[in-house]
Design a protein around this nucleic acid. Sequence first.
DNA 1: GAGTGGTCTAGACCACTCC
DNA 2: GAGTGGTCTAGACCACTCA
Lengths: 247, 247
Amino acid sequence: MLQETPASPTFSPLYRQIKSLILQGLASGEWRPGGAIPSENELASRFGVSQGTVRKAIDEMAAENLLVRRQGKGTYVASHNDDDPRLIFRFLRLVPENGTLEASQSEPLECWHAKAGQEAARTLGIRLAAPITIIRRLLRFGTKPVVIEEIYLPGETFSGLTLEALQEYQGSFYGLLETRFGVRMIRAEERLRAVAADRSSALLLNVAEGSPLLSVERVSFTYGDRPVEWRRGLYSTADHYYQNDLS
Amino acid sequence: MLQETPASPTFSPLYRQIKSLILQGLASGEWRPGGAIPSENELASRFGVSQGTVRKAIDEMAAENLLVRRQGKGTYVASHNDDDPRLIFRFLRLVPENGTLEASQSEPLECWHAKAGQEAARTLGIRLAAPITIIRRLLRFGTKPVVIEEIYLPGETFSGLTLEALQEYQGSFYGLLETRFGVRMIRAEERLRAVAADRSSALLLNVAEGSPLLSVERVSFTYGDRPVEWRRGLYSTADHYYQNDLS
DNA sequence: GAGTGGTCTAGACCACTCC
DNA sequence: GAGTGGTCTAGACCACTCA
Protein backbone atom coordinates (compact mmCIF):
# COMPACT_ATOMS: atom_id res chain seq x y z
CA MET A 1 0.00 0.00 0.00
CA LEU A 2 2.62 2.49 1.02
CA GLN A 3 5.64 2.61 -1.21
CA GLU A 4 8.73 1.26 0.43
CA THR A 5 11.67 1.31 -1.94
CA PRO A 6 14.24 3.91 -1.03
CA ALA A 7 16.52 5.28 -3.75
CA SER A 8 13.67 5.09 -6.24
CA PRO A 9 13.24 8.36 -8.12
CA THR A 10 9.88 9.12 -6.53
CA PHE A 11 10.87 8.06 -3.06
CA SER A 12 9.67 10.08 -0.12
CA PRO A 13 9.83 9.11 3.52
CA LEU A 14 6.88 7.44 5.18
CA TYR A 15 5.82 10.49 7.17
CA ARG A 16 5.56 12.53 3.95
CA GLN A 17 3.34 9.89 2.42
CA ILE A 18 1.19 10.05 5.54
CA LYS A 19 1.17 13.82 5.24
CA SER A 20 -0.08 13.67 1.69
CA LEU A 21 -2.77 11.17 2.69
CA ILE A 22 -3.99 13.58 5.37
CA LEU A 23 -3.80 16.40 2.82
CA GLN A 24 -6.08 14.38 0.54
CA GLY A 25 -8.59 14.13 3.37
CA LEU A 26 -8.51 17.90 3.75
CA ALA A 27 -8.71 18.66 0.03
CA SER A 28 -11.56 16.20 -0.51
CA GLY A 29 -13.58 17.72 2.32
CA GLU A 30 -13.57 14.53 4.36
CA TRP A 31 -12.55 16.67 7.34
CA ARG A 32 -13.96 20.19 7.30
CA PRO A 33 -12.37 23.44 8.54
CA GLY A 34 -12.92 23.81 12.27
CA GLY A 35 -13.58 20.08 12.71
CA ALA A 36 -11.37 17.46 14.28
CA ILE A 37 -9.37 14.87 12.41
CA PRO A 38 -8.94 11.37 13.88
CA SER A 39 -6.55 10.94 16.78
CA GLU A 40 -2.89 10.17 16.19
CA ASN A 41 -3.39 6.62 17.39
CA GLU A 42 -6.31 6.00 15.08
CA LEU A 43 -4.49 7.41 12.05
CA ALA A 44 -1.45 5.32 12.96
CA SER A 45 -3.40 2.08 12.99
CA ARG A 46 -5.42 3.09 9.93
CA PHE A 47 -2.26 3.71 7.91
CA GLY A 48 -0.29 0.88 9.50
CA VAL A 49 2.54 3.01 10.85
CA SER A 50 3.68 3.99 14.30
CA GLN A 51 2.22 6.92 16.18
CA GLY A 52 5.54 8.77 15.96
CA THR A 53 5.38 8.75 12.18
CA VAL A 54 1.87 10.19 12.13
CA ARG A 55 3.05 12.70 14.67
CA LYS A 56 5.85 13.94 12.45
CA ALA A 57 3.44 14.35 9.54
CA ILE A 58 1.04 16.35 11.70
CA ASP A 59 3.92 18.39 13.11
CA GLU A 60 4.75 19.66 9.66
CA MET A 61 1.15 20.41 8.82
CA ALA A 62 0.67 22.30 12.06
CA ALA A 63 3.79 24.34 11.24
CA GLU A 64 2.18 25.20 7.90
CA ASN A 65 -1.01 26.35 9.60
CA LEU A 66 -3.04 23.58 8.02
CA LEU A 67 -3.85 21.85 11.30
CA VAL A 68 -4.14 23.08 14.87
CA ARG A 69 -3.29 20.85 17.83
CA ARG A 70 -5.20 21.20 21.07
CA GLN A 71 -3.75 19.25 23.95
CA GLY A 72 -6.20 16.92 25.60
CA LYS A 73 -8.80 17.50 22.86
CA GLY A 74 -7.49 16.54 19.47
CA THR A 75 -6.16 17.90 16.19
CA TYR A 76 -8.35 20.25 14.21
CA VAL A 77 -8.49 21.54 10.66
CA ALA A 78 -7.41 25.18 10.71
CA SER A 79 -10.18 27.63 9.87
CA HIS A 80 -10.51 31.32 9.12
CA ASN A 81 -13.47 31.26 11.47
CA ASP A 82 -11.22 30.52 14.42
CA ASP A 83 -10.58 33.70 16.29
CA ASP A 84 -6.98 33.03 17.10
CA PRO A 85 -5.63 36.59 17.30
CA ARG A 86 -2.26 35.50 15.89
CA LEU A 87 -3.87 34.27 12.69
CA ILE A 88 -6.34 37.07 12.03
CA PHE A 89 -3.63 39.49 10.90
CA ARG A 90 -1.95 36.83 8.81
CA PHE A 91 -3.77 38.01 5.70
CA LEU A 92 -4.18 41.70 6.52
CA ARG A 93 -0.85 43.25 7.31
CA LEU A 94 -2.06 46.79 7.72
CA VAL A 95 -1.43 48.30 11.15
CA PRO A 96 -2.49 51.71 12.50
CA GLU A 97 0.39 54.12 13.04
CA ASN A 98 -0.76 54.83 16.58
CA GLY A 99 -1.23 51.33 17.83
CA THR A 100 -4.83 51.57 18.96
CA LEU A 101 -5.54 48.20 17.36
CA GLU A 102 -8.99 49.06 16.10
CA ALA A 103 -10.62 46.22 14.28
CA SER A 104 -11.12 46.76 10.58
CA GLN A 105 -14.60 46.81 9.10
CA SER A 106 -15.45 45.64 5.63
CA GLU A 107 -18.04 47.51 3.59
CA PRO A 108 -18.98 45.63 0.42
CA LEU A 109 -19.86 48.09 -2.35
CA GLU A 110 -20.67 46.00 -5.38
CA CYS A 111 -20.76 42.40 -6.50
CA TRP A 112 -21.30 41.47 -10.12
CA HIS A 113 -20.65 38.70 -12.57
CA ALA A 114 -18.51 38.88 -15.67
CA LYS A 115 -16.34 36.88 -18.04
CA ALA A 116 -12.67 36.31 -17.38
CA GLY A 117 -10.28 38.48 -19.38
CA GLN A 118 -6.80 37.36 -20.27
CA GLU A 119 -5.14 38.43 -17.05
CA ALA A 120 -7.84 37.02 -14.78
CA ALA A 121 -7.93 33.74 -16.70
CA ARG A 122 -4.18 33.31 -16.54
CA THR A 123 -3.97 34.23 -12.87
CA LEU A 124 -6.87 32.03 -11.77
CA GLY A 125 -6.00 29.15 -14.06
CA ILE A 126 -9.39 29.16 -15.80
CA ARG A 127 -10.26 29.47 -19.46
CA LEU A 128 -10.80 32.76 -21.22
CA ALA A 129 -14.36 34.10 -20.85
CA ALA A 130 -15.14 31.66 -18.04
CA PRO A 131 -17.58 33.16 -15.53
CA ILE A 132 -16.04 35.15 -12.69
CA THR A 133 -17.46 37.09 -9.78
CA ILE A 134 -16.09 40.53 -8.97
CA ILE A 135 -16.45 42.26 -5.64
CA ARG A 136 -15.59 45.84 -4.79
CA ARG A 137 -15.28 46.73 -1.16
CA LEU A 138 -13.96 49.33 1.22
CA LEU A 139 -12.12 48.65 4.45
CA ARG A 140 -12.32 51.09 7.35
CA PHE A 141 -10.36 51.30 10.55
CA GLY A 142 -12.77 53.06 12.86
CA THR A 143 -14.43 55.55 10.52
CA LYS A 144 -11.42 56.17 8.28
CA PRO A 145 -11.51 54.55 4.85
CA VAL A 146 -8.12 52.90 4.38
CA VAL A 147 -8.36 50.21 1.71
CA ILE A 148 -10.31 49.94 -1.52
CA GLU A 149 -10.10 46.64 -3.31
CA GLU A 150 -11.48 44.50 -6.10
CA ILE A 151 -11.68 40.75 -5.67
CA TYR A 152 -11.91 38.33 -8.59
CA LEU A 153 -13.25 34.85 -7.95
CA PRO A 154 -13.78 31.95 -10.35
CA GLY A 155 -17.54 31.79 -10.82
CA GLU A 156 -17.80 28.03 -10.98
CA THR A 157 -16.25 27.55 -7.57
CA PHE A 158 -18.18 30.34 -5.91
CA SER A 159 -21.46 30.42 -7.76
CA GLY A 160 -24.34 32.24 -6.14
CA LEU A 161 -22.30 34.74 -4.17
CA THR A 162 -24.27 37.97 -3.73
CA LEU A 163 -23.78 41.41 -2.27
CA GLU A 164 -26.42 40.62 0.34
CA ALA A 165 -24.56 37.51 1.51
CA LEU A 166 -21.40 39.60 1.85
CA GLN A 167 -23.19 42.28 3.83
CA GLU A 168 -24.92 39.87 6.13
CA TYR A 169 -22.05 37.56 7.00
CA GLN A 170 -20.58 38.13 10.43
CA GLY A 171 -16.90 37.36 10.22
CA SER A 172 -14.08 37.54 7.74
CA PHE A 173 -14.38 37.21 3.99
CA TYR A 174 -12.30 34.04 3.98
CA GLY A 175 -14.47 32.70 6.77
CA LEU A 176 -17.49 33.16 4.51
CA LEU A 177 -15.85 31.38 1.58
CA GLU A 178 -15.08 28.51 3.93
CA THR A 179 -18.52 28.05 5.41
CA ARG A 180 -20.48 28.83 2.28
CA PHE A 181 -18.31 27.13 -0.34
CA GLY A 182 -16.01 24.84 1.60
CA VAL A 183 -12.93 26.46 0.10
CA ARG A 184 -10.14 27.30 2.50
CA MET A 185 -7.32 29.71 1.62
CA ILE A 186 -4.04 28.40 2.89
CA ARG A 187 -1.44 30.61 1.28
CA ALA A 188 -1.14 33.82 -0.72
CA GLU A 189 1.41 35.74 -2.73
CA GLU A 190 1.37 39.51 -2.67
CA ARG A 191 3.06 42.03 -4.96
CA LEU A 192 3.45 45.53 -3.62
CA ARG A 193 4.06 48.73 -5.51
CA ALA A 194 3.68 52.45 -4.91
CA VAL A 195 1.22 54.13 -7.27
CA ALA A 196 -0.52 57.48 -7.65
CA ALA A 197 -4.19 57.71 -6.65
CA ASP A 198 -6.60 57.95 -9.55
CA ARG A 199 -9.66 60.16 -9.21
CA SER A 200 -12.21 57.61 -8.06
CA SER A 201 -9.92 55.85 -5.60
CA ALA A 202 -8.88 59.20 -4.18
CA LEU A 203 -12.51 60.09 -3.57
CA LEU A 204 -13.27 56.84 -1.79
CA LEU A 205 -10.14 56.95 0.35
CA ASN A 206 -10.52 60.65 1.07
CA VAL A 207 -7.07 61.62 -0.17
CA ALA A 208 -5.90 64.01 -2.90
CA GLU A 209 -5.84 62.77 -6.46
CA GLY A 210 -2.30 61.77 -7.36
CA SER A 211 -1.18 61.15 -3.81
CA PRO A 212 0.88 57.99 -3.26
CA LEU A 213 -0.97 54.77 -2.43
CA LEU A 214 0.27 51.27 -1.74
CA SER A 215 -0.88 48.88 -4.45
CA VAL A 216 -1.27 45.32 -3.19
CA GLU A 217 -1.98 42.56 -5.65
CA ARG A 218 -2.72 39.15 -4.18
CA VAL A 219 -3.21 35.64 -5.49
CA SER A 220 -4.55 33.17 -2.92
CA PHE A 221 -4.30 29.41 -3.07
CA THR A 222 -6.27 26.55 -1.59
CA TYR A 223 -5.14 22.96 -1.07
CA GLY A 224 -2.95 21.66 -3.86
CA ASP A 225 -1.72 25.16 -4.72
CA ARG A 226 -4.85 25.83 -6.71
CA PRO A 227 -5.33 29.61 -7.24
CA VAL A 228 -8.86 30.64 -6.26
CA GLU A 229 -8.69 34.37 -5.65
CA TRP A 230 -7.12 37.35 -7.32
CA ARG A 231 -7.31 40.64 -5.54
CA ARG A 232 -6.12 44.17 -6.26
CA GLY A 233 -6.13 46.69 -3.48
CA LEU A 234 -5.07 50.26 -2.87
CA TYR A 235 -3.99 51.06 0.67
CA SER A 236 -3.83 54.55 2.10
CA THR A 237 -0.65 54.62 4.19
CA ALA A 238 -0.97 58.07 5.72
CA ASP A 239 -2.06 56.73 9.12
CA HIS A 240 -1.30 53.03 8.67
CA TYR A 241 1.59 50.95 7.49
CA TYR A 242 2.02 47.49 6.01
CA GLN A 243 3.90 45.30 8.45
CA ASN A 244 6.12 42.48 7.34
CA ASP A 245 8.37 40.20 9.34
CA LEU A 246 11.43 38.80 7.63
CA SER A 247 12.68 35.64 9.19
CA MET B 1 21.80 21.01 36.30
CA LEU B 2 18.74 21.04 34.10
CA GLN B 3 15.55 22.06 35.79
CA GLU B 4 13.14 19.21 36.19
CA THR B 5 10.02 20.31 38.01
CA PRO B 6 6.96 20.43 35.79
CA ALA B 7 4.13 22.74 36.76
CA SER B 8 6.61 25.26 38.15
CA PRO B 9 5.91 28.72 36.77
CA THR B 10 9.13 28.85 34.74
CA PHE B 11 8.90 25.30 33.47
CA SER B 12 9.85 24.56 29.92
CA PRO B 13 10.40 21.15 28.36
CA LEU B 14 13.89 19.68 28.20
CA TYR B 15 14.33 20.26 24.49
CA ARG B 16 13.63 23.97 24.94
CA GLN B 17 16.26 24.17 27.63
CA ILE B 18 18.68 22.44 25.27
CA LYS B 19 17.66 24.91 22.58
CA SER B 20 18.44 27.85 24.79
CA LEU B 21 21.81 26.33 25.71
CA ILE B 22 22.68 26.02 22.04
CA LEU B 23 21.43 29.57 21.52
CA GLN B 24 23.86 30.73 24.21
CA GLY B 25 26.67 29.10 22.29
CA LEU B 26 25.64 31.00 19.18
CA ALA B 27 25.18 34.33 20.93
CA SER B 28 28.49 34.05 22.78
CA GLY B 29 30.35 33.33 19.59
CA GLU B 30 31.45 29.87 20.72
CA TRP B 31 30.28 28.59 17.34
CA ARG B 32 30.71 31.07 14.48
CA PRO B 33 28.48 31.60 11.43
CA GLY B 34 29.40 29.12 8.72
CA GLY B 35 31.08 26.76 11.20
CA ALA B 36 29.84 23.44 12.50
CA ILE B 37 28.38 22.83 15.92
CA PRO B 38 29.08 19.53 17.71
CA SER B 39 27.25 16.44 16.51
CA GLU B 40 23.90 15.46 17.93
CA ASN B 41 25.47 12.58 19.81
CA GLU B 42 28.12 14.76 21.37
CA LEU B 43 25.63 17.41 22.45
CA ALA B 44 23.39 14.68 23.86
CA SER B 45 26.11 13.27 26.07
CA ARG B 46 27.39 16.73 26.97
CA PHE B 47 23.94 17.81 28.17
CA GLY B 48 23.02 14.40 29.59
CA VAL B 49 19.92 13.88 27.46
CA SER B 50 18.98 11.52 24.66
CA GLN B 51 19.86 12.20 21.05
CA GLY B 52 16.18 12.59 20.21
CA THR B 53 15.83 15.50 22.59
CA VAL B 54 18.81 17.32 21.08
CA ARG B 55 17.36 16.54 17.70
CA LYS B 56 14.08 18.21 18.52
CA ALA B 57 15.90 21.33 19.73
CA ILE B 58 17.95 21.49 16.54
CA ASP B 59 14.82 20.85 14.46
CA GLU B 60 13.26 24.03 15.79
CA MET B 61 16.41 26.06 15.29
CA ALA B 62 16.77 24.81 11.73
CA ALA B 63 13.15 25.83 11.07
CA GLU B 64 14.04 29.31 12.35
CA ASN B 65 17.00 29.53 9.97
CA LEU B 66 19.48 29.65 12.84
CA LEU B 67 21.12 26.32 11.98
CA VAL B 68 21.53 24.39 8.74
CA ARG B 69 21.68 20.60 8.69
CA ARG B 70 23.82 18.83 6.11
CA GLN B 71 23.29 15.11 5.97
CA GLY B 72 26.46 13.12 6.38
CA LYS B 73 28.45 16.23 7.35
CA GLY B 74 27.02 17.91 10.39
CA THR B 75 24.99 20.85 11.62
CA TYR B 76 26.21 24.35 10.78
CA VAL B 77 25.56 27.85 12.04
CA ALA B 78 23.57 29.68 9.36
CA SER B 79 25.47 32.49 7.67
CA HIS B 80 24.71 35.32 5.27
CA ASN B 81 27.87 34.29 3.46
CA ASP B 82 26.29 30.99 2.44
CA ASP B 83 25.09 31.26 -1.08
CA ASP B 84 21.90 29.31 -0.63
CA PRO B 85 19.70 30.88 -3.31
CA ARG B 86 16.61 30.42 -1.16
CA LEU B 87 18.05 32.57 1.59
CA ILE B 88 19.59 35.38 -0.45
CA PHE B 89 16.22 36.95 -1.22
CA ARG B 90 15.05 36.53 2.34
CA PHE B 91 16.06 40.10 3.18
CA LEU B 92 15.58 41.76 -0.20
CA ARG B 93 12.10 41.18 -1.48
CA LEU B 94 12.35 43.27 -4.59
CA VAL B 95 11.80 41.36 -7.83
CA PRO B 96 12.07 42.61 -11.43
CA GLU B 97 8.76 42.86 -13.24
CA ASN B 98 10.11 40.86 -16.18
CA GLY B 99 11.65 38.00 -14.30
CA THR B 100 15.15 38.25 -15.69
CA LEU B 101 16.53 37.66 -12.20
CA GLU B 102 19.44 40.05 -12.53
CA ALA B 103 21.54 40.20 -9.41
CA SER B 104 21.42 43.48 -7.53
CA GLN B 105 24.54 45.54 -7.07
CA SER B 106 25.21 47.73 -4.09
CA GLU B 107 26.93 51.08 -4.56
CA PRO B 108 27.92 52.64 -1.23
CA LEU B 109 27.74 56.43 -1.49
CA GLU B 110 28.68 57.74 1.93
CA CYS B 111 29.60 56.50 5.38
CA TRP B 112 29.89 58.86 8.29
CA HIS B 113 29.69 58.95 12.06
CA ALA B 114 27.19 60.86 14.15
CA LYS B 115 25.35 60.91 17.45
CA ALA B 116 22.07 59.10 17.94
CA GLY B 117 18.99 61.28 17.85
CA GLN B 118 15.82 60.38 19.71
CA GLU B 119 14.37 58.11 17.06
CA ALA B 120 17.62 56.24 16.37
CA ALA B 121 18.34 55.82 20.06
CA ARG B 122 14.87 54.46 20.77
CA THR B 123 14.89 52.14 17.79
CA LEU B 124 18.38 50.74 18.39
CA GLY B 125 18.03 50.60 22.16
CA ILE B 126 21.05 52.82 22.82
CA ARG B 127 21.34 56.04 24.80
CA LEU B 128 20.74 59.46 23.32
CA ALA B 129 23.84 60.91 21.61
CA ALA B 130 25.59 57.53 21.60
CA PRO B 131 27.84 57.12 18.56
CA ILE B 132 26.21 55.74 15.43
CA THR B 133 27.42 55.02 11.93
CA ILE B 134 25.30 56.06 8.97
CA ILE B 135 25.62 54.62 5.49
CA ARG B 136 23.95 55.84 2.33
CA ARG B 137 23.88 53.52 -0.60
CA LEU B 138 22.24 52.89 -3.94
CA LEU B 139 21.08 49.53 -5.24
CA ARG B 140 20.98 48.81 -8.94
CA PHE B 141 19.48 45.96 -10.89
CA GLY B 142 21.62 45.86 -13.99
CA THR B 143 22.25 49.55 -14.64
CA LYS B 144 18.90 50.82 -13.31
CA PRO B 145 18.99 52.52 -9.92
CA VAL B 146 16.11 51.02 -7.91
CA VAL B 147 16.71 51.54 -4.21
CA ILE B 148 18.22 54.38 -2.21
CA GLU B 149 18.69 53.75 1.48
CA GLU B 150 20.22 54.98 4.70
CA ILE B 151 21.45 52.49 7.26
CA TYR B 152 21.93 53.37 10.91
CA LEU B 153 24.22 51.17 13.01
CA PRO B 154 25.19 51.45 16.68
CA GLY B 155 28.77 52.72 16.61
CA GLU B 156 29.99 50.69 19.57
CA THR B 157 29.05 47.39 17.98
CA PHE B 158 30.37 48.28 14.54
CA SER B 159 33.28 50.60 15.22
CA GLY B 160 35.76 51.20 12.46
CA LEU B 161 33.38 50.62 9.56
CA THR B 162 34.48 52.71 6.58
CA LEU B 163 33.28 53.48 3.08
CA GLU B 164 36.35 51.72 1.70
CA ALA B 165 35.54 48.51 3.57
CA LEU B 166 32.01 48.64 2.15
CA GLN B 167 33.25 49.18 -1.38
CA GLU B 168 35.86 46.44 -1.20
CA TYR B 169 33.83 43.68 0.38
CA GLN B 170 32.70 41.01 -2.05
CA GLY B 171 29.35 39.72 -0.85
CA SER B 172 26.29 40.97 0.94
CA PHE B 173 26.21 43.73 3.53
CA TYR B 174 25.05 41.33 6.24
CA GLY B 175 27.85 38.99 5.21
CA LEU B 176 30.30 41.79 5.89
CA LEU B 177 28.82 42.55 9.33
CA GLU B 178 29.15 38.85 10.13
CA THR B 179 32.77 38.36 9.11
CA ARG B 180 34.05 41.74 10.24
CA PHE B 181 32.08 42.16 13.47
CA GLY B 182 30.74 38.72 14.30
CA VAL B 183 27.16 40.01 14.38
CA ARG B 184 24.59 37.92 12.58
CA MET B 185 21.13 39.27 11.64
CA ILE B 186 18.50 36.65 12.26
CA ARG B 187 15.23 38.52 11.92
CA ALA B 188 13.85 41.85 10.78
CA GLU B 189 10.64 43.85 10.92
CA GLU B 190 9.68 46.02 7.99
CA ARG B 191 7.12 48.81 7.72
CA LEU B 192 5.98 49.74 4.23
CA ARG B 193 4.32 52.91 3.07
CA ALA B 194 3.77 54.73 -0.20
CA VAL B 195 5.36 58.18 -0.31
CA ALA B 196 6.10 60.90 -2.86
CA ALA B 197 9.67 61.23 -4.12
CA ASP B 198 11.54 64.24 -2.79
CA ARG B 199 13.91 66.11 -5.08
CA SER B 200 17.18 64.39 -4.17
CA SER B 201 15.77 60.86 -4.10
CA ALA B 202 14.07 61.47 -7.42
CA LEU B 203 17.38 62.48 -8.96
CA LEU B 204 19.19 59.43 -7.69
CA LEU B 205 16.46 57.02 -8.73
CA ASN B 206 15.93 58.73 -12.05
CA VAL B 207 12.21 59.33 -11.56
CA ALA B 208 10.12 62.50 -11.53
CA GLU B 209 9.92 64.50 -8.33
CA GLY B 210 6.68 63.67 -6.54
CA SER B 211 6.23 60.28 -8.16
CA PRO B 212 5.19 57.46 -5.84
CA LEU B 213 7.91 55.43 -4.13
CA LEU B 214 7.74 52.52 -1.74
CA SER B 215 9.13 53.50 1.65
CA VAL B 216 10.60 50.54 3.53
CA GLU B 217 11.71 50.98 7.11
CA ARG B 218 13.52 48.05 8.69
CA VAL B 219 14.74 47.11 12.13
CA SER B 220 17.00 44.05 12.23
CA PHE B 221 17.75 41.89 15.23
CA THR B 222 20.55 39.61 16.23
CA TYR B 223 20.49 36.77 18.79
CA GLY B 224 18.39 37.57 21.83
CA ASP B 225 16.20 39.97 19.85
CA ARG B 226 18.75 42.73 20.19
CA PRO B 227 18.13 45.46 17.58
CA VAL B 228 21.35 46.25 15.72
CA GLU B 229 20.29 47.93 12.51
CA TRP B 230 17.79 50.56 11.49
CA ARG B 231 17.31 51.17 7.83
CA ARG B 232 15.16 53.49 5.73
CA GLY B 233 14.87 52.86 2.04
CA LEU B 234 12.97 54.20 -0.93
CA TYR B 235 12.17 51.67 -3.65
CA SER B 236 11.28 52.59 -7.20
CA THR B 237 8.49 50.21 -8.16
CA ALA B 238 8.07 51.12 -11.80
CA ASP B 239 9.91 48.04 -13.07
CA HIS B 240 10.10 46.02 -9.85
CA TYR B 241 7.74 44.90 -7.13
CA TYR B 242 8.06 43.90 -3.52
CA GLN B 243 7.16 40.25 -3.15
CA ASN B 244 5.63 38.86 -0.01
CA ASP B 245 4.34 35.41 0.76
CA LEU B 246 1.56 35.06 3.31
CA SER B 247 1.40 31.68 4.89
C1' DG C 1 34.74 2.13 7.30
C1' DA C 2 33.72 5.65 10.57
C1' DG C 3 30.92 9.41 11.51
C1' DT C 4 27.10 12.31 10.49
C1' DG C 5 22.22 13.42 10.04
C1' DG C 6 17.40 11.11 8.57
C1' DT C 7 13.74 7.80 9.40
C1' DC C 8 11.00 4.61 11.99
C1' DT C 9 9.62 2.01 15.88
C1' DA C 10 7.94 0.85 20.70
C1' DG C 11 7.10 2.06 25.07
C1' DA C 12 6.87 4.97 29.19
C1' DC C 13 5.13 8.76 31.55
C1' DC C 14 3.05 13.55 31.80
C1' DA C 15 -0.53 17.35 31.10
C1' DC C 16 -4.82 18.59 29.66
C1' DT C 17 -9.94 18.02 28.64
C1' DC C 18 -14.21 16.12 29.33
C1' DC C 19 -17.48 13.07 31.41
C1' DG D 1 -11.07 7.41 34.46
C1' DA D 2 -10.62 7.37 29.54
C1' DG D 3 -8.84 9.64 25.71
C1' DT D 4 -6.08 13.13 23.69
C1' DG D 5 -1.77 15.45 22.50
C1' DG D 6 3.27 16.47 24.61
C1' DT D 7 7.75 14.83 26.14
C1' DC D 8 11.52 11.71 26.58
C1' DT D 9 14.02 7.57 25.93
C1' DA D 10 16.56 3.63 23.55
C1' DG D 11 17.60 1.25 19.73
C1' DA D 12 17.58 -0.14 14.89
C1' DC D 13 18.55 0.78 10.28
C1' DC D 14 19.29 3.93 6.19
C1' DA D 15 21.58 7.68 3.31
C1' DC D 16 25.19 10.63 2.72
C1' DT D 17 30.14 12.42 3.11
C1' DC D 18 34.81 11.96 3.45
C1' DA D 19 39.12 9.85 4.06
